[in-house]
Amino acid sequence: MSLLEIENLTVEFDTAAGKLRAVDGISLSVEEGEVLAIVGESGSGKSVSMLAVMGLLPWTATVTADRMTFQGRDILNLSPAERRRIAGNDIAMIFQEPVASLNPCFTVGFQIEETLREHTDLDRAARRRRAVELLQSVGVPEPEDRLGAFPHQMSGGQCQRVMIAIALACGPKLLIADEPTTALDVTIQKQILDLLMDLQAKTGMGLILITHDMGVVAETADRVVVQYMGRKMEEADVLSLFEKPKSAYTRALLSALPENAVGDRLPTVSDFAFDDTPYTGART
């Protein structure tokens, strides 16, 4: 049984100009201990489909799916209270802008302990100890002192570490990382990715990594889903994706990498005439 299974997920938004279909019939699954990367341009629906899993979409969104299960349990039609028990506990998510996703009014210690207070029966002292442990495990130096720090007193990379600590507080089975390193420098990006891979290997959780950076995919993923305009174009394990991409869109995306430039010009995705009938291999 897969950890997370999604079949034919569709998300539509009500807008002033009528319905907008952001995600169009996506199916995917994640196993325990697996790193799945979802790649696509902005607007390809990669974040929206994961927000649908977390139930974080605004009321204008209509989510439909043939099946959406987490550990065999339906998570499409949960009551808000049941959903809150799962979100942050069994499934956790970290976002692109670490500084913006922390609350500037509270210390990071408070924000880590908040999750523990919500989901566990630990008393105050135990929560404190656990918070120190967590900060230590994500590589924040002097964790006891840092618990009292506010987000603005830390750098972007440190804030992302705190976000990861919050996400890992309750030992989730699935971690969804939405562009966790896009706002960070390459050297910091490397540290954060190494940390995520390290923690993933240690805890054996499933990890969904949303990104548009092919380099990040190459360095981290086991399996890759390529998304374009809300549809799934391709699904493959990482090696065969880079070796012999099946869909024309993936080929286009790979050749737009600056290091693959031939001569003076970079090929762009629009240079490739690919049919946009989506790849349907896994939907049979």
Partner: peptide, 18 residues
């Protein structure tokens, strides 16, 4: 350090990682 931190997207480095 900077060069080492830049992700590599070629088939050989993926193979090495796997």
């Amino acid at each position: 350090t900077l060069f080492a931190a830049t992700p590599r997207a070629d088939v050989e480095s993926i193979r090495a990682r796997l």
